[in-house]
Design a protein around this nucleic acid. Sequence first.
DNA 1: GTGAAGGGCCAC
DNA 2: AAACGTGGCCCTTCAC
Length: 591
Amino acid sequence: MEIYFQLIRDGEGLLAACEELKKEEFVGFDTETTELDPYDGDIRLVQFSSGKQNYVIDLKPFRDRGNLRDSAELAPLRDLLFADKPFKVAHNAKFDAKWIRHHLGTEIGGIYDTFLASQLIAAGDQDRRHSLADVAQFFTGTELDKTEQISDWGADELSHSQLEYAARDAAVMVQLREKMDERLELDGLTRVSRLEFECVMPIAELELNGCYLDEGRWREQLEKVKIAQAKAADELQDMLSAGVAQASLFGRAEINLDSQPQVTDALRNLGVPVPDTTRAWVLQPLAEKFPVVGKLLEYRGVAKMLGSFGENILEFIKPATRRIHADFRQIGAPTGRFACSNPNLQQIPHEEAYRRCFIAGEGKKLVIADYSQIELRILADFSHDENFIKAFESGADFHSTAAAQVFGVKPEDVTPEQRSFAKRLNFGVVYGMGASRFAEMTGITLAEGEATLRRYFTTYRGLDSWLRQAAEKAVNNRESRAASGRMIRMRYDENDPSSKGNVRRNGKNAPIQGTSADILKRALRLLHDSLRSTSGKLVNIVHDEIIVECDAAEAESTSALVENAMRTAGEEFITRVPIKIDIAIAAEWAK
DNA sequence: GTGAAGGGCCAC
DNA sequence: AAACGTGGCCCTTCAC
C-alpha cells in the first residue's frame, strides 16, 4: 500500500505543517525511537496525519543543529503538542508522551489513546488483543505490516520503506479513532474514556520521575534477612531430616526447602497430616502441635522476602537517574486498577523496614496521601444505607462504630474482638465473602458465622439489597459498571457450577473496585494540573495512595494541593458520604 | 536451554 | 484446604 507523506527536515517546513495540523480537531500521532526507554536513546521521527495529509518530521537534522529541548525552530511542534486541540490520537500514548516530555521538554495536551480505548471496549475479555495491528484489523479491517517497527531508527539515512511505515502508523489513527469513538459511545464508555485519556500524561511523568530507593538501607535490611533465612533454613533442614532413616547414618539428608513436594513428603514422614496444599493458612493451625510446621512458616516468610524483595530490586535502579522507573499499566485489571511491574512498587511489604528505604531525594520531602476506607465509602454511597453512612458521618473509628451498630452495644463498650469481627466483615462483604469463609477465619462455627452475617446484614439492610442486586445484574447482564461508566465484562459459563458464584462475587466487587480506580485516576489528572508550576512530582501510586516528592520548603503547600485534588476527585463520584484523606509529610515512605 | 504451568505469597 | 476481589514475582517442575 503506497502512502503519500511529506518529509520535514527544517523549521520552515515544520511551521507550515503545524499550521495545517492546528486546524484539525483530531490528528494521528506517532513517534519512532532508537530505544524503548527515553533515558536510553533518541527520538528520531514524529509523525502526524490530518487525515488528508501525512507528515513525517525527521528530528535528526534539528538535533544536528542543536539541542532539541532548546531548539527555537521546534517551537511550533511543541506548541502543537502542548495544546489541548487538536487531540493527538496515538496508540499507547504513554510511550510517545514520555519521549516527547523527556526529549522535547513539553507535555502533550489533548491525548486520545486507541490502546486504552480498545481495552475499555474489551472490558476484560481475555481473548481480545490490543496491539495497533490487532485493533486496526478489528475496527477498520485494515491489515498492518509491523515488520519495520523494530528496524534501525538510528541510521543516518532512513529507507523509504521505514518512512512510509512511520507515516502509515499515524495515518491509520484518524479513521481508527472515528470507528472506536462510535463504539465507545454505543457502549456508554465516553466518560470513562476521557478519564483514562487525561490520565496518560500523569502516568508518563510518574514513570519518568521514578522513585528514589536508598540502596544502603535496602542492603542493610537484606543482610538481616539473609542471616535470618540461613538460620531458619538450617534449623528447618535439621527438623525435617529427623524423620529420615538415612539421616543418622549419612548425616543430614538435605532436601530442597523451596520444593513443595519434597517438603510435603518430609512433613508426612514426621507424621504431620499435611493436605495437598501447604499454604500458610492451612499450615497455621498445625503449627502449635508440630514445631516443624512453625519453622517452615518462618522459613517461607524470610525466603519470600529474600526472593521477591532482595537484590533483584536494586537492579532496577537506573544509573542515569539513580532512581527506579517501574512500568505502570494504566488498565492493569478489568476493574480499571493499575498494574505495576519491573519492579512492582505496589507490593512492597508494608513493614517499616522496607518502606523506609524509599526516601525523598536530597532537600526533598515526600507527601504521602491515601484515601481512608475508600471502597467502603463507595459501597455506602452506592447502597444509600442509612446506618453505614451514619457510621462514616460520625467521623469515629469506622470498624468500632460498625461493631457498636452490629452488636448493639455503646461505642465505648466495643470489645477488641467485636471490632475485629466487624473489620473482617466490612472487608469481606466488598469481596462477596460467605459465612463459611468468615467462620473459618474467625474460628467460630458455621452456625455462628451465619448468625453473625445475618446480624450484619440486618443492621445494614440497604447494603444487603445493593449487593444482591449487583450480583443479579452481573449474572443477567454479563457485565458490571463502575461510577464512570467503566464496563467490566463477566465470563459466565452456565455449564460450570462454580461460574455463577464467581460472577455474583465479581458483580459485587467490580463496581466498587472500579469506582475506586476511577477516583484515583481523576485525582491524578487534577493533581497533575495543580502541580504543574511547582516542584511537586508524582513518584508512586498504590491503588488508593498517591506519593509526591517536592522541595522541602514546598511540602506544606504541596500537601494541600494533593489533598485538594484527591478530595475533589472523590466528591465527583461520591456525594452521600464524606471523603477522608490521610496525609503525611515525611522523609521516607513510612508513617 | 527455555518457556509454561502451578504453587505460594506480597500489596491494596 | 477456601465459595474473598484485583494484580505481579519467585521458585520448582515438566514438556519441548
